[in-house]
């Protein structure tokens, strides 16, 4: 080792590496979540994907910094062989670095919290005073859906586009997890309790309901099909269903 590794100019390659890795992370963040995650069919899912993108972009410089530093350390300051290298110059404390690091992580955490709490409030905000109520009933290993006021019960979930839906979720037996994959909403179905979530489907087309809480033997197969249709189609479908008393 020469003293050149104490030379500030040699940090140039570290900053280059940091920059490049940050760009890689940002690109991954911009394209990864939206590419891999299911297409969004509700404002909640849109918010989820947006938050994923923002968090990834915010985390990119942090992860890139750690990777760049690690790679830089590995490139510059390693020794091979069976004999230990001589002692390095001891640096026990550096208040400025610690304070800077803590400040930056506090700021980043604050940003994540402010964004996250804002998004949570938006997620929970009710868009409408007159939502469509759907009772979701879980039983090992089938979902059924009731539309109160109509005596209709179905094992596939039809929803009208553009109207807020409030799901009243309960279970006949054990705990299940009600999850509309393309709408980014989840809540457990518990026996003896009604839990609620709401969302507003805003894209026409089919979607998936899956169980995301382990519920026994056929948990893997506890799925249901869903369809977002126009309000007219929804009324037609509802009228055509057998009425149950």
């Amino acid at each position: 080792m020469t003293d050149s590794d104490n030379d500030k100019t040699s940090l140039k390659s570290f900053f280059w590496l940091w920059g490049i890795l940050t760009i890689v992370g940002v690109v991954l963040g911009l394209y990864g979540p939206s590419h891999l995650m299911p297409k969004s069919m509700s404002p909640n899912m849109h918010l989820t994907i947006l938050t994923m993108v923002i968090f990834t972009v915010a985390a990119a410089p942090v992860a890139a910094g750690v990777y760049a530093a690690t790679i830089y350390v590995l490139r510059n300051w390693t020794h091979k062989g069976d004999e230990p290298p001589p002692p390095a110059k001891p640096v026990r404390e550096n208040g400025i670095i610690v304070a800077t690091w803590v400040s930056i992580s506090v700021l980043l955490t604050l940003f994540l919290l402010i964004w996250g709490l804002g998004a949570l409030a938006e997620d929970n905000a009710s868009a409408s005073s007159n939502p469509l109520i759907v009772n979701v009933i879980a039983q090992q290993w089938v979902w059924t859906f009731q539309y109160p006021g109509t005596h209709v019960e179905s094992n596939s979930l039809y929803l009208p586009e553009g109207r807020e839906v409030e799901f009243h979720v309960s279970s006949d037996d054990v705990t299940h997890g009600f999850w509309i994959v393309q709408m980014g909403v989840q809540v457990d179905a518990n026996p003896g309790v009604i839990t609620t979530i709401h969302t507003t489907p805003n894209v026409l087309g089919t979607f998936d309901v899956r169980c995301e809480q382990f519920c026994g033997l056929n948990h893997a197969f506890m799925d249901a099909l869903g369809d977002v249709v126009t309000p007219q189609q929804f009324s037609t479908w509802l009228a055509a269903q057998p009425q149950r008393t």
Binding site: V73, W77, V91
Partner: peptide
């Protein structure tokens, strides 16, 4: 959510200590 995300601060310090220790060290591979 607040308490959970605050955990990222001490976790981040782990990296500071590790990288700070290795930085300009004479690392025996």
């Amino acid at each position: 959510m607040v308490t959970t995300e605050i955990i990222s601060i001490p976790t981040g310090l782990f990296f500071l200590v590790l990288i700070g220790t290795l930085w300009r060290g004479h690392i025996w591979m």
